[in-house]
Computed example of a mutant assay.
Amino acid sequence: MRRYGKLFAVMAIGFATMLVAVDFAEARRAGGFSGFGSRGTRTYSAPPTTRTAPTTAAPIERSMTPQTQATRPAATQNQTQAGRNTGGMFGGLAGGLMGGLLLGGLFGMLMGTGFGGGFGFLGLLLQGLLIFFLIRWAMRAFGTRQPAYAGPGAGIARSSMAGGEGKPSFEIPRLGGGLGRPRAPENADEIGVGQADLDKFEGLLKQMQTAYAAEDYAALRRISTPEAMSYLAEELGDNATRGLKNVVRDVHLVQGDIAEAWAEGAVEYATVAMRYESIDYMVDRTSGHVVSGDPDDVGESVEIWTFVRRHGTDWQIAAIQSADDQG
């Protein structure tokens, strides 16, 4: 125990640090939300990167969408299938061979014989070397013969993780910008998102921030799905419990790209990368003193917002993911 005391201490400190990091990650950052909501069958797949958000978005960690074969990312499916094929490090025929050798050697040593029972320590040493080289041979012989598995959607996963270099993207216009109809990245927009939709997305960004700051539950319920509303209400409730209030104002959209847009039956989804500026800070509910953030400093955030609608209905906010570089 003395030998491994330092190792256990380092592991304990690392585990404690990880828990603290997770706790901070769950809280709403100034100018941004943690990953929550639903993107249909693409909930647990990373949206394609864009010019506005060139880094991979943070995964959605809070969602009511179950992780089924249809919603599980292709990379995870491939790893799971590969694990089944190889049986892990000691799986398959190689695992059986190594297990048999180790068990036989252990039994032999307990009985005082083994492969080299008549040669004392030298025999024991030879036995160990023999087992080592047999294990090494078995791992090379059987471990490299497993075929790479490409499950359904593997090509989609690769293209989703690829960068947006060389692909045209549009900029969501600033207020009064007067830009013409934008162009989405090639093969990203499957439903034909128009200028009216983009104006709606920009409006929902500002309405969300305004309603969140005002703790207007009715407005949040109107512009977001019931699931997204539940997470927003949870964050507002946590702030109230801690005696804090989030102030958000002067929200200004700087740039935006369509990451992907698609339909699932009668439901349409549009995932949009948005870079926006705002003044965002926390105050004490009782005294009004600033607890965190700067009421005079404009901060910038990059987030991935997913909107959803059924035919004949308005767009609603369905999911929000951070895409800041530090995230």
Results as ranks from 00 to 15, higher is better:
V10F: 11
A21S: 04
R28W: 14
G31T: 10
G31S: 05
G32L: 06
G32E: 09
F33M: 08
F36V: 11
G37N: 07
R39M: 13
G40P: 04
T41Y: 04
T43M: 07
S45W: 05
A46L: 03
P48S: 02
P48N: 01
T50S: 14
A58C: 04
E61R: 10
E61F: 08
Q67G: 10
Q69P: 14
Q69F: 12
R72A: 14
Q77V: 06
Q79K: 04
G83R: 08
G83K: 04
T86I: 07
G92H: 05
G95R: 07
G96T: 07
G96E: 13
L101F: 12
L102F: 10
L102T: 14
G105E: 12
F107H: 04
G108C: 01
F115T: 05
F115H: 02
F115C: 00
G123W: 11
G128T: 13
L129Q: 10
R136K: 13
A138V: 11
M139T: 10
Q146I: 11
A154Y: 11
A157S: 09
R158W: 07
G166W: 05
K167A: 08
P168L: 12
I172A: 13
L179P: 05
G180V: 09
R181E: 05
E186T: 06
I191L: 03
G192Y: 02
A196R: 13
G203L: 14
L204Y: 06
Q207E: 14
A211V: 06
R222V: 00
R222G: 00
T225E: 02
P226S: 00
Y231H: 12
E235S: 10
K245R: 14
N246R: 15
V248A: 07
D250S: 10
E268P: 03
V272D: 03
Y276R: 05
T286M: 01
V290M: 02
S292N: 03
G293L: 04
S301L: 08
S301Q: 03
V308S: 09
D314Q: 14
I320T: 07
S322C: 10
D325W: 12
Q326E: 15
G327D: 15
